Amino acid sequence: KEMRNAYWEIALLPNLNNQQKRAFIRSLYDDPSQSANLLAEAKKLNDAQA
């Protein structure tokens, strides 16, 4: 469930391009235990690109 939530949050971040989203989501599938960390990194990048 945590992975699914992280997937959708990443997919809906407005300032990431599709390539960036795909990279984060690929990492999510590679290591679901890192969901919270990956989401935090994606949000950080999203904010930096705002």
Score class of each variant (00 low, 15 high):
19 Q>K: 10
9 E>Q: 13
21 K>R: 05
31 D>T: 07
40 A>G: 06
38 L>V: 08
14 P>A: 07
39 L>T: 05
35 S>C: 07
12 L>V: 06
9 E>N: 04
31 D>N: 11
7 Y>F: 14
41 E>F: 05
34 Q>F: 05
23 A>G: 10
41 E>P: 00
13 L>I: 01
3 M>V: 13
6 A>R: 05
11 A>Y: 13
31 D>P: 01
4 R>I: 15
16 L>C: 00
5 N>C: 10
8 W>I: 15
32 P>I: 05
12 L>A: 12
7 Y>T: 06
21 K>E: 01
21 K>P: 00
37 N>K: 12
5 N>T: 13
8 W>E: 12
1 K>H: 15
22 R>E: 15
48 A>I: 11
36 A>L: 08
35 S>I: 14
22 R>Y: 12
26 R>K: 15
29 Y>A: 14
20 Q>A: 03
29 Y>T: 14
42 A>C: 02
20 Q>D: 03
1 K>F: 03
34 Q>E: 07
50 A>R: 11
48 A>L: 10
43 K>T: 05
19 Q>F: 11
8 W>V: 15
3 M>L: 14
17 N>M: 04
12 L>W: 12
40 A>S: 10
45 L>P: 00
50 A>E: 12
30 D>C: 13
50 A>T: 07
15 N>F: 13
4 R>P: 14
48 A>T: 12
35 S>A: 10
4 R>K: 13
42 A>T: 01
19 Q>H: 13
1 K>M: 08
42 A>N: 00
21 K>N: 00
8 W>Q: 14
6 A>M: 15
27 S>T: 06
42 A>F: 01
8 W>C: 15
44 K>F: 08
28 L>F: 03
50 A>S: 10
48 A>M: 07
27 S>Y: 09
44 K>H: 08
46 N>Q: 02
13 L>P: 00
17 N>K: 04
20 Q>E: 04
49 Q>I: 07
10 I>V: 04
11 A>H: 14
3 M>H: 13
42 A>G: 01
25 I>Y: 14
5 N>D: 10
36 A>T: 08
10 I>P: 00
38 L>C: 03
7 Y>Q: 12
13 L>Q: 03
17 N>C: 07
42 A>W: 00
41 E>Y: 06
29 Y>S: 11
38 L>T: 05
35 S>D: 03
27 S>G: 08
42 A>S: 03
49 Q>E: 05
4 R>W: 15
17 N>Y: 03
30 D>Q: 12
10 I>A: 00
43 K>N: 06
14 P>K: 07
8 W>T: 13
44 K>I: 09
17 N>R: 05
13 L>V: 01
43 K>M: 04
6 A>V: 05
7 Y>H: 13
47 D>T: 07
1 K>C: 15
50 A>L: 09
46 N>W: 01
9 E>P: 02
31 D>E: 09
3 M>C: 13
43 K>D: 02
26 R>L: 15
32 P>F: 08
20 Q>P: 00
26 R>N: 15
15 N>W: 10
3 M>E: 11
11 A>N: 15
38 L>H: 04
44 K>Y: 06
23 A>K: 12
23 A>P: 01
10 I>K: 00
38 L>I: 14
17 N>V: 03
27 S>Q: 09
43 K>R: 08
21 K>A: 01
39 L>S: 03
13 L>W: 02
40 A>Y: 06
29 Y>W: 14
28 L>T: 02
33 S>I: 04
21 K>C: 03
20 Q>W: 02
38 L>R: 04
43 K>Q: 06
39 L>V: 11
35 S>Y: 12
40 A>Q: 07
49 Q>D: 03
30 D>A: 13
40 A>N: 13
12 L>Q: 08
33 S>T: 09
39 L>R: 05
22 R>M: 14
27 S>E: 10
24 F>L: 12
21 K>T: 02
34 Q>L: 08
3 M>K: 07
4 R>A: 13
3 M>R: 12
7 Y>L: 10
40 A>F: 08
39 L>W: 03
48 A>H: 09
40 A>I: 10
2 E>L: 04
17 N>A: 05
16 L>R: 00
45 L>T: 05
48 A>R: 09
21 K>Q: 01
9 E>H: 07
30 D>T: 09
44 K>V: 09
23 A>F: 06
22 R>D: 15
25 I>F: 15
7 Y>I: 11
14 P>M: 05
22 R>V: 14
2 E>T: 11
38 L>F: 04
30 D>H: 14
29 Y>V: 13
41 E>S: 08
9 E>K: 08
31 D>G: 03
19 Q>V: 11
47 D>Q: 09
18 N>K: 12
50 A>G: 12
6 A>L: 12
32 P>Q: 03
50 A>K: 10
31 D>Q: 07
31 D>F: 11
17 N>I: 03
24 F>R: 02
5 N>V: 11
21 K>L: 03
25 I>C: 04
19 Q>L: 09
12 L>M: 06
47 D>E: 09
16 L>A: 00
42 A>I: 02
20 Q>H: 02
11 A>G: 05
2 E>D: 13
29 Y>D: 04
2 E>K: 11
23 A>N: 10
19 Q>D: 13
3 M>Y: 08
18 N>V: 13
20 Q>M: 03
12 L>P: 01
30 D>M: 11
42 A>D: 00
17 N>P: 02
11 A>T: 15
4 R>N: 14
3 M>N: 10
18 N>M: 11
25 I>E: 06
4 R>E: 15
24 F>E: 01
46 N>H: 02
20 Q>T: 04
38 L>K: 04
32 P>A: 04
27 S>D: 10
11 A>M: 15
28 L>C: 03
8 W>F: 14
26 R>D: 15
41 E>V: 09
37 N>V: 11
24 F>C: 04
31 D>K: 06
32 P>H: 04
34 Q>Y: 05
11 A>C: 09
17 N>S: 12
27 S>F: 08
15 N>T: 03
34 Q>C: 08
24 F>M: 07
12 L>H: 15
37 N>I: 13
26 R>T: 11
5 N>H: 14
2 E>A: 07
4 R>V: 14
16 L>F: 01
45 L>S: 02
15 N>A: 05
32 P>T: 03
47 D>A: 09
40 A>H: 10
14 P>F: 02
10 I>R: 00
40 A>M: 14
35 S>W: 07
21 K>M: 02
30 D>W: 06
6 A>G: 04
29 Y>I: 13
9 E>S: 05
34 Q>M: 11
10 I>T: 00
38 L>P: 01
41 E>Q: 13
19 Q>R: 06
24 F>N: 02
24 F>H: 03
31 D>R: 05
45 L>M: 08
1 K>T: 09
36 A>C: 11
4 R>Y: 15
9 E>M: 09
30 D>F: 08
43 K>A: 04
19 Q>P: 07
16 L>Y: 00
38 L>W: 06
14 P>L: 04
28 L>H: 01
19 Q>W: 11
20 Q>N: 02
49 Q>H: 04
6 A>C: 04
46 N>T: 01
24 F>Y: 07
3 M>T: 13
39 L>P: 01
15 N>E: 03
6 A>D: 04
16 L>V: 03
44 K>M: 12
23 A>V: 07
13 L>C: 02
